[in-house]
Design a protein around this nucleic acid. Sequence first.
DNA 1: CTCTAATCGAGACGGTACGTCGCGTCTTACG
DNA 2: CGTAAGACGCGACGTACCGTCTCGATTAGAG
Lengths: 191, 191, 191, 191
Amino acid sequence: MSTLSDARVVRTRDALREAMTALAAERALDAITVRAIAARAGVGYATFFRHYSDKEALLADVAGRLIQDFLRQVRPLLQQSDRRAAARSMCAFVHDRLPLYKALLAGGSGETVRAEMLRATMDTMAMARTRPAEGPLDDLMLFHLVSATLNLLSWWLRHLDEVDIDTMAEMIDRAVLTPVSALRTRPPEGC
Amino acid sequence: MSTLSDARVVRTRDALREAMTALAAERALDAITVRAIAARAGVGYATFFRHYSDKEALLADVAGRLIQDFLRQVRPLLQQSDRRAAARSMCAFVHDRLPLYKALLAGGSGETVRAEMLRATMDTMAMARTRPAEGPLDDLMLFHLVSATLNLLSWWLRHLDEVDIDTMAEMIDRAVLTPVSALRTRPPEGC
Amino acid sequence: MSTLSDARVVRTRDALREAMTALAAERALDAITVRAIAARAGVGYATFFRHYSDKEALLADVAGRLIQDFLRQVRPLLQQSDRRAAARSMCAFVHDRLPLYKALLAGGSGETVRAEMLRATMDTMAMARTRPAEGPLDDLMLFHLVSATLNLLSWWLRHLDEVDIDTMAEMIDRAVLTPVSALRTRPPEGC
Amino acid sequence: MSTLSDARVVRTRDALREAMTALAAERALDAITVRAIAARAGVGYATFFRHYSDKEALLADVAGRLIQDFLRQVRPLLQQSDRRAAARSMCAFVHDRLPLYKALLAGGSGETVRAEMLRATMDTMAMARTRPAEGPLDDLMLFHLVSATLNLLSWWLRHLDEVDIDTMAEMIDRAVLTPVSALRTRPPEGC
DNA sequence: CTCTAATCGAGACGGTACGTCGCGTCTTACG
DNA sequence: CGTAAGACGCGACGTACCGTCTCGATTAGAG
């Protein structure tokens, strides 16, 4: 832990995270070399490995911070009954952090980050359920809710100049949140 | 053209495609080596490159055939008004070709195939539109329609023993098709 | 073995051996990098490892060939009773292959080659003994005979312009061969 | 100068020298890492460099002390006419400091130390010559005298339990000292 | 017996070489 | 004489060690 308070360590890790964010916006994860990250961060090649075992680990760190931040914000919204307002808040939250989210969700490595975000968000929401899952359909709906929402957000991040926040929130609400809510109230009899 | 009718060429390409399908079910595309493909296909290493420029090209070929087949089936369904029946037909179609779809959509390389499938399907459906796109929201809804449907299908392929065809079709209908249809009828005023 | 007859393999290995010989003449083995060897041989870096596991292995190969050649020549000389002639023949043999011997015995990596040559020559001569070793002194004398001879030869290779073959042969005879012979005839009583 | 009397400095250097001696007994110099030396000495890594510029410098220091000590003892012996007694004294001297000499001359890094010892001893003896060198053969004989003696000593240090001091002294006398002396009295006419 | 400056440990850092692996090209030996 | 086998150049990987450096925390010895 002395290591975490060392100014050099902090500086290096920040530089690496920032470099990764920049590169992730440009290209897919496997087109990003550790050498490129180190160069971009202005850091020695071997130094990279003193902080992260992989570029995957670095991206996981970067994405993890994003996701934690996101979940802290989004989780309370889910409990509230006004879905439209929840969608609006979420969009606004993302909009306030545009550069970061654009880089990580809509950039070249978005696929990877989105997958991790899907996993983490599903975990969080599964644990936040008021009642335990009653069957596979609960899982399916949760999966659909989260993945569709994330997909819509990523799409939006790639088309920011075409759709404004309110429209986007309405779309998310009407295309995902409300239908899922309806399904939850009156699930199919099968299964 | 002599090349395409040459029995050896046909045999080799079939073997390569099958090997790729098998490997794609097991791991992500960048964890698949050309050597592994060639070995699995029982073909010389250099021979691979006489038929495909990369492993990406091979996967594109494999996925392309799947997608063409899929689109040929699914496209007519979209015009019909009975969405539930359309969803049912689509699920049945996939269910009839389980091994292939499980490998390519739900396997380790599913991400890659899904992305390509999303792109191709969106192209096809955009061209099949009765009226031209009237704004970014049409694109957004198309994107949501296709990506959410594919996501639900992939989820299903990973949970086949938990959810039957009819339930799945109902879910797709109620979670995606019908909401999108409603949105199309009464789009948001914004934008 | 198909690999050994492949023209490319032969060419590459020859180039590597020659590069190693050249570099061994210039500097000590641990100041020689595999990269330098590969560059000098006009060969890709990774290619080196397709033929030798180490630079040590390469030097061992190079030295091994030299030593085998040397022993084939020198071994018969040892049986003969005319020590002066034997020394003369040995010096002449080395003199006929000056560039190679100078590089490997008197060059920067001479230490390494000499050690290997000492080992191999002692093994050969131990097996060629007319009677088995009768005690540690036999080993000691053999060690002295071989190491002193090799040392004198290496010295000579570094001072070729100062001492001619005949003088050198006389020195080896009078400083090493004859004294050892005398010791063998009348060993110390101790031990 | 304050630096040399500082108790910590003295302690650290002693520890480093001892660590180097111990490691030199075990493996070759280039298999010894500075980190290993520091760890063995119970000293911080960077501290090493505050006292020696490299591991070579440390070994040079360690070996230098050994050599100075050795030469102080051996040099007077060379003047005396009783060669057997001189050899006996030298062996006894080494035998009295067995652990140190075994580590440095017969250990894994013996090669390096021997080379330095050869150089230093030759220098000393060249300067101690009663008459100046009269030709290359004087150099050659000096080289042979010193290197062969050192080689025999190293051999002995690896076979201490097989050969006693007196026998060893006799061997050195009869195999090296006396033949060289004879050569000096009646050199070859050549050259 | 304190104060102050040097020395210490710990270890991060930029480099560089290592040996491995996969790519895509190009040569070769064999059937 | 065409094709499979596989050698090759390339370049990224992750590891190890080098020698420099920046930290605080002792700690010795001068005042």
